[in-house]
Design a protein around this nucleic acid. Sequence first.
DNA 1: GATACCAATGCATGCGGATGCAATCAAGCG
DNA 2: CGCTTGATTGCATCCGCATGCATTGGTATC
Lengths: 359, 359
Amino acid sequence: MAKLNSSLSRPKSTSPKPKSTLPADDQIGSGHAVTSYDVARHAGVSQSAVSRCFTPGGSVSDKMRARIKQAADELGYQPNAIARMLFTKRSNLIAVIVANLGVNPDFTSILSKHLIERGLNLLFFTLDQEADAERAIEQLWQYRVDGVISASELSEAHISLLRERGIPLVFINRLYEITGANSVGCDHAEGERWLIDRLVQAGHKNFGIVAGPKLSAVSRLRTHAALDRLQVLGIDKPAIIYGDFTYEGGRQAMRTLFEGKKRPDAVVCANDLMAIGCIDEAREVLSLGIPDQVSVVGFDGLSPGQWSAFSLTTVRQPMQSMVKAAVDMLVARIADPALATERRVFSGELVEGHSARLK
Amino acid sequence: MAKLNSSLSRPKSTSPKPKSTLPADDQIGSGHAVTSYDVARHAGVSQSAVSRCFTPGGSVSDKMRARIKQAADELGYQPNAIARMLFTKRSNLIAVIVANLGVNPDFTSILSKHLIERGLNLLFFTLDQEADAERAIEQLWQYRVDGVISASELSEAHISLLRERGIPLVFINRLYEITGANSVGCDHAEGERWLIDRLVQAGHKNFGIVAGPKLSAVSRLRTHAALDRLQVLGIDKPAIIYGDFTYEGGRQAMRTLFEGKKRPDAVVCANDLMAIGCIDEAREVLSLGIPDQVSVVGFDGLSPGQWSAFSLTTVRQPMQSMVKAAVDMLVARIADPALATERRVFSGELVEGHSARLK
DNA sequence: GATACCAATGCATGCGGATGCAATCAAGCG
DNA sequence: CGCTTGATTGCATCCGCATGCATTGGTATC
């Protein structure tokens, strides 16, 4: 027992007062956080035993495990993840970066759920301006996150930096041709072709396109696909308005489209939010019947779009699958950083609402 | 110089090979994370100098600071927050707990912004079931978060636990009469009275109430306030339907309300999402004009409610102010844990949309 | 010019847990 | 019954940084 006790004061080289450094066993929970040493003393075992007891795969006998668990419960001990991280260099933290706008609101909670299932925690960063990216990268490095999931664009410099530092990175709906920039996404082009095909089949001839911001890659993919398809089908080059992915932006775009002399009979929006804006503007201000006088389609599968007020025809992105895939990819790369950069593309699902005349 | 070099190998008791333990100065960035020791060696100073250089208020001369900064830049050094936390016992991490439903979608990003301003980071937890709360509490303790902001209910046991452990806690829109359960909220009762008063003034006589889940405190506050006010104004006791705060729940509630013989001329919903559901159901299925045949009001100030398709009459919660106040309170309590438990209540803002006949 | 004083710097140590290694113990085996 | 073997357990050490303390050098004071 003497041996045990001596082993429990941290191995200090010179300890002039050998007893008083150890707080009495009974004064527990009084502010001072419970450490594995406290548990060890309480259970009459070594600190390493306690550590092993809380480490998956640790070599501990059942008897000892029971004893330690009990002592731990009595003291309310929880291992200090910070200290563990310092040694193991694994934080179980995943940085999640989202830009402020245009994100599916469910995204975060879906992601959170998938990460929890894997025993990972979510360090959350919102990007507003470019400077925020700088800060986020800095912070996530300081916290030694195990990986990054980004639903926002990052500069190539930042991507390279993460790669150099060995932090796996998966993008959601952003495509980069850079080593290390893994991604999952929706097949925007395919979905857009579906929409265009159906609209053209139904006899629409004059198209208007409401794109997203010129810099948005997602917008470009969707818009280009739509334009290409229209060209293939021999439809006149449509008018293009650049919006900002917001409801208000959609309304403005609609207004602008109908200022021209050639009024469209089909409006193709780069996302649902703008499509909803278009519908509202059409009904409220332009007094146009949807879909009788003009068809409106979006892209995303946002839940408000499916409310009967809009019943939006759109392409739903398989968010669940995408997020799950992203987490899978990330976890795989945390386990084996040598895995090649990969892109996974999921087909969307055509949602035939009543906002477009499809026959 | 010899003195310096010797000080830079960690003070190991027995170091048989004094040179080879120090990686050469030139092999940088090769996987091995850069530490303050690396920077120190590169700059020819002690590790503590490096540490002081990166610690606000550290005593370092300008010359040395410059030299160290340069060395740090050259090596790409970033202090390891993990190690720092271990020593300082401050993680700069704030746990944010949100329940899955009924949260204002902007909430997270607003919160994120305010935390960033304070140099804090956001550890995110989504609660689905009761078991998730258990896990969240466990995790946030393990990560030694500095504080907790919860937009979800927590059990009294959990609240007490956090208090015992000295982790400040602020609720958003949840009220508890428990020491340590600080909260910011909206004055639900006041807002609800505004709505009722206006509706009654406009001559509404038959009210229907669409409440939230029976267990929801927010729903209770809003619903009770509405009922009380109706009673005060001498209006007949309205029918009450319990919904689940969702769009679909609102539609069902509306359907149920209009199955009865006494059809309401005003429907008061415990949140905007259900109010939107009511409106859609009224228009699509019940063929009722809003607000001509029935008035619908909500509560929250959700942005979709303000789309012209709904133009919801509602009370907008001052989310920005609330979140800012929550962060302020939390930060204050991190600085001084002895501060008394506090509740801050903000008035909402009446939004007079077109979903209700107000005169 | 000697003493007092302050700023800058280095040294040693600790934060709490994980793990290589050695020591121990028990069971198994011939 | 002695030795081998494997499973437990304890010991010492390290993870990377922050800080109390001692030391140094330089400046101010009279």
